[in-house]
Design a protein around this nucleic acid. Structure first.
Lengths: 202, 202, 202, 202
DNA sequence: CGATAATCGAGACGGTACGTCAGGTCTTGGC
DNA sequence: GCCAAGACCTGACGTACCGTCTCGATTATCG
């Protein structure tokens, strides 16, 4: 089932693309994701609607690219800092995450994405592959290092450990369940570390 | 300027209310939350649109009442089982939560709510008060019991501990980040418990 | 094959209807039929597009009602003048027709209709029934009177005779084939009458 | 400000031209004039849109050339048959006209043109010069012959007489006012001839 | 027990945005 | 430099729902 006439990316106008993404970014911030419309983006970007529909399947995809994919292409995430002290490093990362989630611009965009993927599995897959997956894997890599350094027990399932770190943050944020601040991030790290560090003298 | 004519709840037609909630429930399951419309509910319920707008402020509120408020009114949640074994009890609860999230009917409705609260703080507050808060507090109460029974350290912040339990589950589910099954629930409980149980001979 | 939900004419807003027809009339005159759009009518009338689509199937139907059906409902046309002098009466009618066709307002509207019915048989039927048919039949009735008064031969097919009168006028006008003025109308009547009047002394 | 780049007819690709006209012809027949699009023609002809816009000003002009101009260049029309019997000759011509108008292929194209010229005076002029004018003039020439042969009165205005012949045919056809068949053509000729032939013994 | 007032089903209304289609212009690469 | 291909901006299409409004026709209290 081939698509009827796949657009030829080599002919794609990069000025149009840039102004669409710029307009999307600005509009998410000024009116919020749920008030965002394709027509609004097109008008603000000085672009025909068709030019948006030609290259993106949905408004979610546009915003995704505008905000999130900008951060460095697909599938790569920088390694975490490694000071040798796993607790310090994890706190650094979770604090950064909290600050990002509290940044109004990122907040608006990512909340929109979160809402969108509840009804759009395709977009969800893309989001996980491009953004959440790499972030998670970077944590896992750092934990592996800590494991080798005997700061974390051998037997720990690092995927679950990572959920223990990120899960609390995202739950508070997505479900608006409570204050989300640096202190909370520190508490989570402290507690989670207790779960995974080696027993001393047991 | 008095409010034009505040709805008089005593005159409310209960058959209309019931058929609206029933229609909402059926439609969420058959077409999904995002495809749900007020007009669709009204048509299926054999009800005028105004009858919906008179009593609910938004489609989110209707679905909220149709699915979630049904479970027992506002603010109360049953206590957790208490077998004396905190690990067993927590596993029971988290397994139940996972199964609920995997139930198609609950999944569709709750995903809709999750999407909606990203842009509707009012609904978010209601959801937290009615559903998520009580669930969380029930866990906290059980943990307090365990604390008294010396199964959990005194110094633990039980709110953070609860996040450690629920956070991983909700992150996997909301962000569609990975397999969500009973084994995962067990792993989370096992790991989280390590974080909060008393040190032995340390 | 019933239409899904036929609009209930009793609920129809007469102010909306009137402003739509008024806007259509003004726009045909100011921008011409082919530049006319449903959106333009709706905007000028201060009306939702759906309100137009609810009651009319096409822009042709709106204009038809705006201009032509206004003239007195369906299927009735006033009788021709009858002075006893068939030539004088026919000249009166054909002159009036020519003047109507030369009136800019009628010209624009009727040209639009003429264009439209080339591709819309349904509208064509309506136009013939409501406007052209009655006009033609009025002529036929007058000719019958003349026949009874021995001013026209018995054996003449009055339908063909009527075409002989109107055909030349419409051809010149529709196909823009030549000057269309009162003198031409008179010539046509004079010539056509020669075809249908009784032979004298033959 | 010089004209940007006047098309140089000498460089014109004749294969492109031919396939455009062929595609136009086929599409008018298969989808009808009003459903015809420039894009459709270009796609069917395997031609860029610009190639059409370069050489024709409008879709009407393409169809005009595809169908009508094909019949023999500009401004010339073959003389009518002249058997010496004016009635027979006119019947031959009007019958041929009726048959042409009833031919589906010609019908579709010419109806499109008729619709188009209601809003495009330029095209109207071209159509009259190339097609309708010559046809009319051929009739006039034949009538002149008949006049010289005393079959038609001296005093008759032959232009009006020609309208008496063609007008009825075109009115029935363009306005879809009634059955258009050979018998009607014969009736028109018979009646019109009564209008223009010499009085006998009057 | 009848007046009266709010609710009810229904759906028309003025709007906004949708996603599609075609128009006519402009750009790119190949011949 | 014409050509095919097709991206681009524009603007209209016809549809879906929104939330408000207006209609009788039930109810269901209250004088």
């Amino acid at each position: 089932m081939a698509s009827p006439s796949p657009p030829d990316a080599s002919r794609r106008s990069s000025t149009a693309r840039q102004s669409i993404l710029k307009a999307a970014r600005e509009l998410v911030l000024s009116v919020g994701y749920s008030q965002l419309t394709i027509e609004g983006i097109a008008a603000k970007a000085g672009v025909g609607k068709q030019t948006i529909y030609r290259w993106w399947p949905s408004k979610g995809a546009v915003v995704f690219e505008a905000f999130l994919a900008a951060e460095g292409g697909a599938g790569t995430a920088p390694d975490l800092p490694d000071t040798g002290n796993i607790e310090r490093d994890l706190k650094t990362v979770l604090r950064a995450t909290v600050e990002e989630l509290c940044d109004p611009s990122f907040d608006a965009a990512f909340r929109g994405m979160a809402a969108e993927i509840q009804g759009d599995t395709e977009l969800a897959k893309q989001l996980v592959q491009t953004l959440l997956g790499p972030q998670t894997q970077a944590i896992v890599r750092r934990l592996e290092g800590a494991q080798r350094a005997k700061q974390i027990r051998r037997s720990i399932d690092l995927d679950v450990a990572t959920e223990l770190l990120f899960g609390p943050i995202f739950r508070r944020w997505l479900l608006r369940m409570g204050p989300l601040d640096l202190a909370f991030a520190d508490s989570v790290v402290a507690l989670a570390l207790r779960a995974i560090r080696p027993d001393r003298k047991r």
